[in-house]
């Protein structure tokens, strides 16, 4: 109990995928304390205008980081009088995380959104000190990231329509979570297209 890895205390996963004119981001709903399940309604995806960010890792840091980014997003809107672009937000997160280079937040965020100008889907992931991974296909994070990598690498194909992308990201998340003892307990999927965002709760195992 004395020495533990902060990024695996609470458990949880996030995954994001790009499709044809759409982007999806999904998370599980568990919050735990090691093996003890504490909550089954802990949503890891937060919305900032039209940009969605999922936070995995240490829950307290995820919440702190989320609040800090909300503050910075508000200031941005005030200054610029416009919404923030996902790519810009990714850089904001990166510098926010790097500020704490030698005492980092134990959280690895995932950004998903559509670029306002081009309509291009954008996803990006980070390590806990702000290194950006702007992949063109998918981003995974959390305690079942290995499992998610395996699922995504096998199931994903580029340019999926939103219905197919929804099925792909859902199956990737569900099956990855089922092979991780500290992920699962419910799941939520956001499907982001040009003119609407849908949020769907998935039926999951409850063990």
């Amino acid at each position: 109990m004395s020495q533990q890895d902060p990024s695996t205390i609470n458990g949880g996963i996030v995954v994001a995928m790009t499709g044809k004119d759409c982007v999806a981001i999904a998370c599980d709903l568990r919050l735990g304390s090691q093996s003890l399940g504490v909550a089954n309604n802990f949503e890891k995806i937060h919305q900032y205008g039209k940009v969605f960010i999922g936070f995995t890792g240490l829950a307290t840091d995820a919440l702190t980081l989320s609040a800090d980014l909300k503050y910075k997003h508000n200031l941005y809107k005030l200054k610029e009088n416009r919404g923030i672009q996902p790519e810009v937000f990714a850089n904001l997160i990166s510098s926010t995380l790097y500020e704490k280079r030698f005492g980092p937040y134990f959280s690895t965020p995932v950004v998903a959104g559509l670029s306002e100008k081009t309509g291009e889907p954008y996803v990006a992931g980070f390590d806990c000190i702000g290194c950006i991974d702007a992949a063109r296909d998918f981003i995974v994070a959390g305690t079942a990231s290995d499992q998610l990598f395996g699922m995504c690498e096998a199931l994903y194909e580029p340019n999926l329509e939103s219905e197919d992308l929804f099925e792909t990201i859902s199956q990737a998340l569900l099956n990855a979570a089922d092979r991780d003892a500290i992920s699962g307990w419910g799941a939520a999927v956001y499907m982001i297209t040009k003119d609407k965002v849908t949020k769907t709760y998935l039926k999951t195992r409850q063990d």
Binding site: D146, Q147, G150, M151, E153, A154, L155, N175, D178, R179
Partner: peptide
Amino acid sequence: SLIMPFLD
């Protein structure tokens, strides 16, 4: 850990 969930 990568393949097992895929096989499930």
